[in-house]
Simulated assay, not measured.
Amino acid sequence: MSDVSAILSQIRSYQSQIGTRGLEAAPNPNAVDFGRQAPAVKPASFGETLQNALQGVNNIQKESGALAQAFELGDPRADLARVMVAAQQSQVAFRATVEVRNRLVQAYQDVMNMPL
């Protein structure tokens, strides 16, 4: 069960990195309202959250590839340590995404196999 928690925390991390908003906390009924209306915040749906996480993984992989290419072309700003760290981050993000996909497929299969 800790694997699922780790994957969910990774998705939340990606979500915060790309600037999306999750579910907002309920407003405080004791808070003082100075006559201004707070903008309505639409909570992110599961699909949006998943799509944003996938876009985040894609961006990480693109950055890793660009950094590796810059290293191969001899760019002095792209040192080997940065390239290796970026490659590892990309690999971890992709593995987490595959694991989430596998869990979703398994959950779908479990629901479809439930007796009526």
Rank of each mutant, 00 (worst) to 15 (best):
M1H: 06
A107K: 12
A44T: 14
G19N: 05
A44Y: 05
N58T: 12
A87Q: 15
Q89F: 02
A87H: 06
A25E: 02
T20E: 10
T97D: 01
E63L: 07
E99F: 09
A66R: 15
A31L: 03
G47E: 13
D33A: 14
Q89P: 01
N113M: 13
Q15G: 04
A107W: 10
K42Q: 10
I11G: 01
A6G: 12
A96T: 08
A87G: 03
V83P: 03
V85R: 12
G22F: 01
S2I: 11
Q91E: 07
R101E: 12
M1Y: 03
S45C: 06
Q88T: 04
Y108A: 09
A87M: 07
M84K: 10
L67K: 03
P29I: 10
S5E: 13
V83E: 00
R36E: 04
A81Y: 00
A93E: 09
F34G: 02
G65S: 14
L73A: 12
G19F: 07
A44S: 15
V41T: 10
E48N: 07
V92L: 10
V83A: 00
N58D: 13
F94I: 09
Q51C: 06
F94A: 15
Q106L: 10
P115S: 06
T20S: 08
Q55C: 09
N52T: 05
A96L: 02
R95V: 11
A93N: 11
G47P: 00
R36Q: 07
A66C: 08
